Simulated scan of single mutants.
Amino acid sequence: MEAVIRVTSFLSADVENGNRTNADRAYDHIREQLIMLDIRPGDPINDDQLAAALGLGRTPVREALKRLERERLVIAYPRRGTFATMVDLTDLADISEIRKQLEPTAAARAARTATSQACDELSRLAAEISAVTDDDEPHEVLRKDVHVHRAIYRASGNPHLEDILVSLDAHATRIWCLFLDRLPGVADHVREHIPLIEAIIAGDPEAAAAQTLAHVTGFEQTIRSLL
């Protein structure tokens, strides 16, 4: 059965930028569906269906799928087609090892260098997640988690670090989504970002790094408790 494509809000905060191409827009849409498991692991991906759902041509969709293949979110087989990659739980340790090093670095850097515009965006997100309740739909709550991570990576001002962490967070989120129906306290997990954001806005790199490390470590421990 082919994946059913939903058009939802973009993960990236700058997707409405007029300089973005149709391939960029296709990439953002498809990537979110893959990360949130709206396109399930192992699902075949039909570029005609995607193009029709997104109101785009096949060429930008194919360009987007090539980018997603480099990120290991889809895999193409000759004469078989393109499929969403499986979620490999053995990747958890490897992903967590790198995130524990780089996420605190990004948060500390953001606390030192974030622009006023970045701080305004983080403040807006903090207000948004402070309103999250335990009764909110878990997938929508988790989308807010991804939005906050992306904003912090951008606020670090290091595009190379941002690219690495965006990729790692995508795979971590896919793991999280596998267990979402068994995870208690998803809203609490997302609200953990509030003191982190406050530390960044206050220009406190040590506190920002410590909050981030605790958050990433907690994610790994929570998933391991369910294995």
Rank of each mutant, 00 (worst) to 15 (best):
Y153C: 05
M86R: 13
A84G: 06
V166K: 08
H160Q: 12
E140P: 00
T222H: 07
A210E: 08
T59W: 13
R224E: 14
V166T: 08
L56N: 06
R62N: 14
C177P: 00
R6M: 07
E162G: 10
T217M: 12
I200W: 02
G18A: 15
L161K: 05
R174I: 04
A84T: 02
M1Q: 08
R150D: 10
A52H: 12
G203K: 05
Y27R: 07
T115V: 09
S130G: 14
G218A: 08
I152L: 11
L142T: 12
A23P: 02
E206S: 12
V148T: 10
P205R: 03
H215C: 07
D136P: 04
S225E: 09
I45R: 01
H139V: 15
D48A: 15
L161I: 11
P44F: 02
I201R: 01
A93Q: 09
L11F: 14
A93M: 05
A110D: 01
S167G: 10
E206A: 14
G218L: 06
K100R: 15
A76H: 06
I197A: 03
A53R: 08
S167F: 08
V216F: 08
D47M: 10
L125N: 02
A51P: 02
T217G: 15
A151N: 00
Q117D: 13
G218R: 01
V61H: 02
